[in-house]
Design a protein around this nucleic acid. Structure first.
Lengths: 137, 137
DNA sequence: ACAAGTGTACCATGTGAAATAGTACAGTGT
DNA sequence: ACACTGTACTATTTCACATGGTACACTTGT
C-alpha cells in the first residue's frame, strides 16, 4: 500500500502526500472513508508521527481530506480538491525544465513525444480509461 | 543572461548548471568558446566562487565543458555530452510524477496533451534560434 | 466518569545539503 | 615576476527535514 524511498530526493512527507493523493484520486479511498490515524500510519511506515501529521495537514489544506478532532482523517470529495493556481504554475515550470534537460541530453523531439505518450498511457490506465487520447503530434 | 531565483527549490549551483547547458546546447556558446572564470562569474552573480566551481565541475563531469588548469573553462563539442542513463531515468521519473500530480489536480488527459504540445513547441524554437555573440552579462 | 483513541500544538534535538568565507597550491600567459 | 586561471581544502552558517517527547482537547465505547 505505502512505499517509501528514504533515498529519494522527495521528502518523506511529500511521498506520503502523493501516495495518499493517488489513493483518493483513483478511488481506492472513497469519499468519507477513514484514513489510518496519525499514530497508526506512523507505525506502519516506521516514521515519526509528526511527519505523518505534516502530510495530513497539507492534504487538508489542499482539500483532499478533512479531519474531525477526536474522530480522524477522512477522504474528501473529489470536487473539494483545490486547484491551487500557484501549484499548477510550479508543476508546469517543472515540466518545462525537465523536458529541456532531456533535450540537452540529445533527445530528439520525436523521442520525447513518444516517451510522453507512454507516460500518459500509464496515467490513463490508473485513471480507469476516462478518455481515450489523441496523438501528441 | 543569467537569472538566478534564490527562492527556487532548485539550488543555485543547479540553476547555473542548467543555464549554461542551455547556452551550450542552443549554440550561444560554441565549441571551444571560453566561459567566464570561476571568480568572474561569481562576481557577476554575487554568489560564492565555490558555488560556481561546483557547477563547473559537474558540467565537466557530464561532458558539457572541458577545463584547462591555468587557462579556463571551455564549451565542449555537443557530441561529447554524456548521456548518463541514470540521469535520464531520474528525469523520466520526474516527468511521471509531475504528470500524475497534474492529473490529481483534475487536469484531463486532453488538457495535459495540449499543455505538453505547447512546451515542446517552446523547445523547438529554442533549438532553432542559434544566436550569435554570447552575452553573458 | 473513565479509558482509549483521535487530531493538534508545541519544543528540543539531530542530520544533511547548500551556501558562504577564507586560505592555499599549481598551471598558463605576458 | 605578475596576474590571471582552475583546484582543493577546512570551517562555519543556514535551513528544511525528520525525529523524540510532552501536553491538551475532543469523541467514542464502556
Amino acid at each position: 500500500m505505502f512505499q517509501l524511498d528514504l533515498k529519494s530526493r522527495e521528502s518523506i512527507y511529500e511521498q506520503i502526500i502523493n501516495q495518499i493523493k493517488e489513493l483518493i484520486v483513483t478511488g481506492v479511498l472513497k469519499e468519507g472513508e477513514k484514513l489510518p490515524s496519525v499514530r497508526e500510519l506512523s507505525k506502519i511506515l516506521t516514521v515519526n508521527p509528526n511527519t505523518v501529521q505534516k502530510s495530513y495537514r497539507e492534504l487538508e489544506r489542499q482539500g483532499y481530506v478533512y479531519t474531525v478532532a477526536g474522530l480522524g482523517c477522512f477522504a474528501a470529495s473529489l470536487s473539494d480538491i483545490k486547484r491551487d493556481e500557484a501549484a499548477v504554475q510550479q508543476l508546469v515550470e517543472t515540466l518545462r525544465s525537465t523536458l529541456r534537460q532531456l533535450t540537452y541530453l540529445g533527445f530528439a523531439a520525436e523521442e520525447i513525444r513518444s516517451l510522453l505518450n507512454g507516460l500518459l498511457r500509464e496515467d490513463d490506465q490508473k485513471q480507469g480509461e476516462r478518455k481515450k487520447g489523441s496523438d501528441l503530434s
